[in-house]
Every structure is written in structure tokens, then in C-alpha cells.
Design a protein around this nucleic acid. Structure first.
Lengths: 127, 127
DNA sequence: CTCTGACTTGAAGCGTGGTTCAAGTCAAGG
DNA sequence: CCTTGACTTGAACCACGCTTCAAGTCAGAG
């Protein structure tokens, strides 16, 4: 029923050292110990999936810790989330342009990539 | 006609220290010197815009340096770019899910955010 | 009961991307 | 000519997110 750290590491794809690191930062907690050894409830895997995903979206470990503790009355955090959603949208736009530019770049024939107008278009400049 | 480092810094939004850092890494070069002082051609601003954008898309400084030197016969690099484009697509999907989850989270009423099914749905698990 | 080896800890180390610092140089202005 | 102050350098430092290490512990096998 309980998992030990090696099992959690394997099933989550994270290193044991990373799990201890997350614990120190308050993102996860073991269900208990067997001697010195951490034992985890299986649902820690869900939490780790969430953490990994959030990390991938550019959240810092400290931010994720806040999210995991959030309750509906934490309006500051709610606002922060709406903020993040907006920022993500900008990121998405930027990445989309970048992806298109790269697709072109992979086949473009300009001697110096930097000179290619299609490539340059990636960088919609405001100035 | 030529810009000095302070001007480039201001107009690019980057710190002078960052410009020197990029130079050391081969991303930019001054047009010359006035005494010890770097002087830049105005088009360095385009290049810096590109660099900033690429950084924002998650490229490392080392990768960007390679891009900037790329010629059409660097097929290894071309393949790498196609690769990057694919990865960006995955990133875009992930960020999109994350954005939707956050939008919901900002208004959801679950006592503990982590318990909200709509929030959890952000983390499409493969296992 | 003893051994083994996977776990435990805190501290140090690493790669990335810069910033900050001390010490020095030099173009321009008075 | 001398001062000023923005530039120059290399080296040290920072934050982040871990990983690695040395030294120690302890559950379970023999």
C-alpha cells in the first residue's frame, strides 16, 4: 500500500534527491517512515505529476508550493493565477511564432540564417 | 551613427553587463572601439531582439550562438531546429492546458485547489 | 547477531544566466 | 594639463533547481 522512495522515484520519473528537495521546499510529504526510510501514499504520484507539469510551465518551486496550499479565500493568490494565465498566453504566442520561424529555418536557403526575412519575422519588434 | 554601450543597453532593454556577457559568448560583437569603449552598429539592436526572443522561447545562450552562425549546409543544425520546433509544439500544448487550468483556478471554489477536478485536469497523466 | 546495502542527513558542487565589485583606463571638458 | 566619470577588465557572487558526496543508520536476509 505504501511506497518507498525508490518506488516513487521510479514511477514519477524523478530522482530520489529531487523528492527530498521537494519535501524540503514543502511540496510533498511522506506518509510516514519505516525506520529512517520515507514511505509515501500512492497519491503522491498525482501531486508529483502536477509539480512536474507546473515546472514545465515555468513556475518556480516556491510558486508551486503556494499553489498547493491555496484555499479559495486566498484572493491574492487567485489574482496571481489570473496574472500567470495572462503571461502564459503571451508565452504561447511567442512560442508559436518561434515554432513557425524554426520550421522555416529548417529548410531555408539563406546563407546566413540571420539574414533571412522569414526568420527575422519571428522577432516582431515593437521599436 | 555608432552607438555606445549605454545607448544599446537602454534601447535594447538589456543591462550593459548582459551585453558584455553576450559578447563573451559570441552572440554579438562591437563594431569597434573608441579608446576602450565599445561602439556598436545600430543593427545590433535587431540581433539583440532576436536573442531576447529566443531566450524567451527557452533556448540557451549556447544554442543561440550556434543559430547565429548557421549556414544552409549545417544540416545537423537544421535537424536540431526541426527538433526544437517539435518540442515547442509540445510546450505550446502544455502551456495551453496550464493556462486553461489557471483560468479556472482563479475562480474555482474548492477548499483545497489541489482537490478540484478541473484543476487536476491540467495534468493529463500518461500513467 | 552480524552483515549488507539501500536508505538517511547536511553540506558542497554544478550549469545557466547573469550582476556586482575592485581596480584601472581614457576621451572630453574646463 | 588635470579632473571627471563613464567606460574597461577579470573575478567573485547570486538565484534556481537540483545532484553528488561523505558519513552515518537501520530493516531485513542469512
Amino acid at each position: 500500500m505504501l511506497l518507498d522512495i525508490a518506488e516513487v522515484a521510479e514511477r514519477s520519473g524523478l530522482a530520489p534527491s529531487a523528492l527530498r528537495f521537494y519535501e524540503k521546499r514543502g511540496l510533498i510529504a511522506p506518509a510516514g517512515r519505516n525506520g529512517l526510510r520515507r514511505t509515501y501514499q500512492p497519491d503522491v504520484l498525482d501531486r508529483l505529476a502536477l509539480i512536474t507539469c507546473a515546472r514545465g510551465a515555468g513556475f518556480t518551486v516556491a510558486e508551486i508550493a503556494r499553489f498547493l496550499l491555496a484555499t479559495p479565500d486566498d484572493s491574492e493568490l487567485r489574482a496571481g493565477m489570473a496574472d500567470k494565465a495572462r503571461k502564459l498566453e503571451e508565452d504561447i504566442d511567442r512560442l508559436t511564432r518561434m515554432r513557425d520561424g524554426l520550421r522555416h529555418a529548417a529548410t531555408c536557403t539563406h546563407t546566413l540564417l540571420v539574414e533571412c526575412p522569414d526568420f527575422k519575422q519571428m522577432f516582431a519588434r515593437s521599436t
